[in-house]
Each structure stands twice: as C-alpha cells, then as structure tokens.
Design a protein around this nucleic acid. Sequence first.
DNA 1: GATTATCCTATTAAATCTATAGGGTAATAG
DNA 2: CTATTACCCTATAGATTTAATAGGATAATC
Lengths: 136, 136
Amino acid sequence: MLSKKTKYGLKALSFLALQKENAPVQIAEIAKQENISQKFLESILLTLRKTGFLGSKKGKGGGYYLIKEPKDILMTDVMRVLEGPIAMVPCVSLNFYEKCDDCPDEKTCSVNKLMLQIRDSTLQVYRNNTLADILV
Amino acid sequence: MLSKKTKYGLKALSFLALQKENAPVQIAEIAKQENISQKFLESILLTLRKTGFLGSKKGKGGGYYLIKEPKDILMTDVMRVLEGPIAMVPCVSLNFYEKCDDCPDEKTCSVNKLMLQIRDSTLQVYRNNTLADILV
DNA sequence: GATTATCCTATTAAATCTATAGGGTAATAG
DNA sequence: CTATTACCCTATAGATTTAATAGGATAATC
C-alpha cells in the first residue's frame, strides 16, 4: 500500500505545480483543497522542503512553492523521499541495499529473482514520469 | 515492503516445487531449511492450502505438497493471496476497487494517474511469471 | 493405541503509520 | 516598533498492521 504521506505529498506537489506564476500557497489552503489533515501535511511539506523540492516563505502572503519546474521533478526522487526504497525487498534495492539475514544466497533465491523484475519495471515507470507528466 | 508472510510463502512454494516426485514435506523441514519460524510458516501453509495451492497429508510421512505443476501456478494468484491487492491504492485496483474518500474525482487525480501505470507494469511482471519461472 | 503431523483459534508483542499538541521563529504590514 | 501571519520543530499519542507464540484438537499411519 501507498502510505498517506506519499499520497498527500504527491497531491500537494501537484497542487503547487498548478499555481500561476508559482505563487506561494499556505499549508491551510492546500490542506483544505485536498482534504488533508493540516498538521500532518505540515510535516510532509517540511520534508519536501528539506529535501530540495519546495521553497517556503514566512509571514503574511507566505507559503510553499516549487523550487524547480514540474518537468524537472522526477518521480524516482519524489518516491524515494516520501515512500522510501522503491524495491520491495532490501536485497534488490539499488540505493538501500541490504542482505537478508535468513537468505544464504541471493543467486538461488526465488523471491530475489521475482522482486528484481518488479523493481526494474517499477523503476522504469518512475523514471519515465516527472511531476509535469502526472498533472491532470 | 514485501511482507514476511509473502516472502516465506514464496520460499515454501519454491521449496516444494523442487521436491522429487512432489513428495510431501513436513512444516518443520521447510521451516528449518528456509530459516522460518515454524508456527508462522504453519499459518501461511494453511492459507495456501485453503486457497488451492497446496495439498496436505496428516500423520507419519505426511506434510505439504503442490497440487498443481509449478508452471501452472501464476504469480498473480499467489501474490493476491499472500500479499493482497497488487495495486498500491484501492482506486486503481482491478480486484479490490474502492473509491478514495478524500478524492473528489479520479480523473483529475495525479496519484491515480501514476499508480495506474505502476499497477499495469507490476501486473505485467506477475502475469509473466509462474512458480516454475522463479525457481533457481 | 501410541505416535506423528496437520488443523485451528486466540492472544500477544513489535513495528509502523497517522495524526495531534504546543510552542518557537522569522517575515511582513501598518 | 509591534501585532499579525505563517512556517518551523520536537515530542508524543493513538490506531493499525504485521509477526510471532501458545495450546490444544483432529486425523492418519504404523
């Protein structure tokens, strides 16, 4: 399952991408429009700012805004930040590789063999989509 | 993340597929060979029996065995039974469709748009693999 | 009839996810 | 300069899911 964190994060990014002239939008405004708990959204936006997707402005007229153009925001990067590793098992992860403690040898593991294919096909979709591509 | 349940289930199925003449194997034997908690594995095998993947035999010389040939066991079916819906969000699920309560319209949802692609590519992998294909 | 091994329900323990609380900090307007 | 606005940040609580364990019932075999 996709976490609410990722879901809300994607919705917020899309919402911001649709603003004219990339004007800052307040947390409260996004939360209301997208039916998201405001405080929860706040922490998600904070993460997205710290990881270089969003900029913020304090005080009246402030809010969050995209730092890059939608076509330059890769889903691969967004998903890794919000959802974590793209692979379903650590032993096939490119960026978060880890050996399974119960598995003596990856080369003779059927789970590894199947999940490697899933990772590749999933990665292909994320690599083929930017924020601009998923706007509707 | 892939659940341990699915991981163990796949390993058990693979293990059984490699037995000569499809002889029954005891839970304890599989658990030991694959480093799985025996009681936990027990409940997984029970599920796989109830869903038509395995047969069982009680008493001495008993155990679990495959009911169909590995090449006739589709990963799509195995994954749905062990891991649940293949889609990452209910609103793009073929077999477990559900509308999101927070989303007014799927047609204008960027999460839906992205996850639809993920579902399709994931499904393609599972449909292209039988138990026989992931044996090593 | 003793032994073996699956069958089944209930419960607990651990981990993760989701959301909330509450105050701090910086920018802006007037 | 001061009140207001809105983001900043940490901690924590509640809910859900996952993983594992306990303990005995049932059925088949030797």
